[in-house]
């Protein structure tokens, strides 16, 4: 990776508009909106609403399905000189393996992320809430994968370290966390939930402390690298995440606030390293754990 900044899955797309604001080739990595086996339209609107220092979304991951993705979107992602993470989600353990197999066969991309933790999928489980189930899922996916596996975890568990350790022992090469946290907003004028899907996933600066703590806990429990995300909105929040143990940080909601934000963050991190005479960002990873 050229730098430790990448988008969180589903929060940044390369299109004619975003290309005006950001050169995707300058990011640390690229990632797709999680792809499913079949077409999914996504949830009914309203799908998004702002809350204090964050947003609730119930987009529900629209997807054109894996075949379309492999044929068109993946090629586009791979046309930049940047590592590509392919994010997949299945309706069953077998389907996860099937998707991982299909991506592997295509011979494109550099990593596969298993989205085990989207809170907006009515019919699917949050896989990352059950260590045994997760272990089984990751192990089977790893078996058929030609690429390193990233397990994307949810903070909505009683012991995130246990879950991450299960993922690692099943063969996950990296841990990504956190996904959004389930929440709800009531429209008091209509006296009913605001979002079309009733509940949504909370993201943005409101969840930063939850994410930093989750990264901290997981850093203590595993030795594989961590991609930290949840509330990255400036240099300081990125540094917090890195010092808690993240080797890279992913930006989510702030891509909506300012589509040019990720490049600015990369510059600010570079300046921070220069000013503090740090030769490599890896020197900062997990620094907050040392000498306690």
């Amino acid at each position: 990776m050229k730098n430790p900044v990448l988008p969180a899955s589903g929060t940044f797309e390369i299109n004619e508009m975003t290309k005006n604001y950001l050169d995707p080739g300058k990011l640390g990595a690229l990632i797709n909106k999680t792809v499913f086996k079949n077409f999914r339209p996504g949830n009914d609107p309203p799908r998004i609403v702002e809350t204090s220092c964050g947003i609730l979304n119930s987009v529900g991951i629209p997807s054109k399905g894996i075949e379309y993705f492999l044929e068109y979107d993946l090629k586009k992602l791979c046309s930049y000189d940047v590592p590509v993470i392919v994010s997949v989600a299945g309706a069953s353990i077998e389907e996860f393996s099937e998707l991982v197999g299909m991506v592997s066969e295509r011979g494109m991309g550099n990593f596969i992320e298993l989205d085990l933790s989207c809170p907006n999928l009515e019919e699917e489980k949050i896989w990352a809430t059950d260590a045994n189930l997760l272990f089984d899922l990751v192990k089977k996916a790893k078996k058929v994968s030609a690429l390193p596996i990233i397990a994307k975890l949810s903070p909505q568990v009683s012991d995130i370290a246990e879950i991450a350790a299960a993922a690692e022992s099943a063969g996950a090469d990296m841990i990504a966390l956190i996904n959004t946290i389930k929440g709800m907003k009531i429209d008091i004028s209509k006296r009913k939930p605001f979002l079309g899907n009733l509940s949504g996933g909370l993201s943005g600066p409101a969840i930063l402390p939850i994410a930093v703590y989750a990264v901290w806990e997981v850093y203590e429990a595993v030795s594989v690298p961590i991609i930290g995300m949840g509330g990255i909105s400036n240099l300081e929040s990125a540094l917090e995440m890195i010092m808690a143990g993240a080797s890279a940080v992913a930006v989510g909601m702030y891509n909506f606030v300012d589509p040019g934000f990720m490049l600015r963050l990369i510059d600010e991190l570079d300046n921070y390293l220069l000013e503090n005479k740090i030769t490599n960002i890896s020197e900062l990873v997990g620094l907050a754990h040392k000498g306690r």
């Binding site: 589903g10 929060t11 940044f12 797309e13 299109n15 508009m17 975003t18 604001y21 909106k33 996504g42 009914d44 609107p45 309203p46 799908r47 998004i48 979304n57 987009v59 629209p62 891509n255 909506f256 589509p259």
Partner: peptide, 10 residues
């Protein structure tokens, strides 16, 4: 976002 990435305005 207004730029086609958040999929909110469906």
């Amino acid at each position: 976002c207004g730029v086609g990435t958040c999929h909110g305005c469906a």
